[in-house]
Amino acid sequence: MSTRSRVLVAIAAVAALAVIVVAVMLVLSPRLMLPGDSGAAPPEPPGPDHALPAAAPPLAEARTRAGVAGLADADWVERVSAASGIPARALAAYAGAAIVKARAMPSCGLGWTTLAAIGLIESDHGRHGGSSVGEDGTVTPPIFGIALDGAATAHIADSDGGAIDGDAEYDRAVGPMQLIPQTWRNWHVDGSGDGVEDPQNIDDAVVATSNYLCRASGDMAGREGWRAGVGAYNSSDAYVQSVADAANRYAKDASGD
């Protein structure tokens, strides 16, 4: 073999080896990253920034409880409770309050899912700190928020002499819907039908919340009105989005999709 032939053979061998090495590297190495590609799954797109319409709870043919908690169909309450994880007693209050508001102020368009979402975020449906909602709707032990002393919250000086929140220096949010004393005084109501108005009772508290939201918004069915109402309850954008996410999740649970 001539010297030239031996050189060409050597070059061909080196080229073949290079092809094999590159192929092995491509198989064993991570995939090539495109610009902006971290290699992780793409993030979930953000959900809607308001509660989408949800089907109204069906009415009970025969009431099993007094007050708003007896208005929604018991089978619906049990089914949606199982699907969503919302305790049945709390769900009955949310559904009943929405039914009452639809009758008294149909133009508001407040859905049960919004009330349930607020109840989740404010107190885990009355279960915050080991509390629980009794069959009469009353939360035991009572739920009290932190002092609104301006350190990590708004500064709200005492407005009730401690009669509602047990604090004679600063106001505290109270009950399963975390209503401050000033709000409770404006919207206090007996939603349970026991003759007592109590912010630690989930029926009373949820109906008061529905009154507050509809007065703050006037149109909880539309995006702008819904965001205005929930924003009046808590002005944090993150809070409003959390309520929207929870409300839409509950609507999906209830629909069975």
Rank of each mutant, 00 (worst) to 15 (best):
H128K: 13
E78N: 13
T64S: 15
L115T: 06
L120Y: 13
G225I: 05
D204R: 12
G36R: 08
D198T: 06
A88T: 03
A228T: 15
G161N: 10
P106M: 08
R227A: 11
K252D: 10
G150L: 03
M220Q: 00
D237H: 13
L34H: 03
G36D: 11
C214Y: 01
D49G: 12
R223C: 12
G193P: 07
A54H: 02
G111N: 09
A117E: 08
I20V: 15
L28K: 12
W187R: 09
S192Y: 14
L52T: 07
A228G: 08
D219S: 12
A232K: 13
A254C: 12
A55R: 13
S132K: 07
D167I: 02
T153F: 06
A221V: 05
D190Y: 04
I202W: 04
D194Q: 01
W184C: 10
M33E: 13
G195D: 05
P45M: 12
Y239Q: 02
L91H: 01
S217W: 00
L28H: 10
P43M: 04
A88G: 04
V68N: 04
A244V: 01
S107H: 10
G191D: 09
G67F: 08
T3V: 09
I11G: 09
P48W: 10
S236Y: 03
A238P: 00
A251M: 00
P141R: 07
G85T: 00
S81R: 01
G39Q: 01
A151P: 00
G36Y: 00
T140K: 02
A251R: 04
T153Q: 05
A216M: 15
G150Y: 00
G175W: 08
R103A: 14
V196C: 04
C214T: 08
S29F: 09
G175M: 10
I11T: 13
E78Q: 14
E169A: 15
A232Q: 14
V133M: 05
L115Y: 04
G109M: 05
Y94M: 14
I156F: 11
L32Y: 08
G193Y: 07
A60C: 08
W187Y: 15
L17D: 06
I86C: 07
A151C: 06
L52D: 00
D190A: 08
T3W: 10
R127I: 05
S131R: 01
G229Q: 04
G229W: 07
D160Y: 09
A157F: 03
G256H: 11
P43D: 07
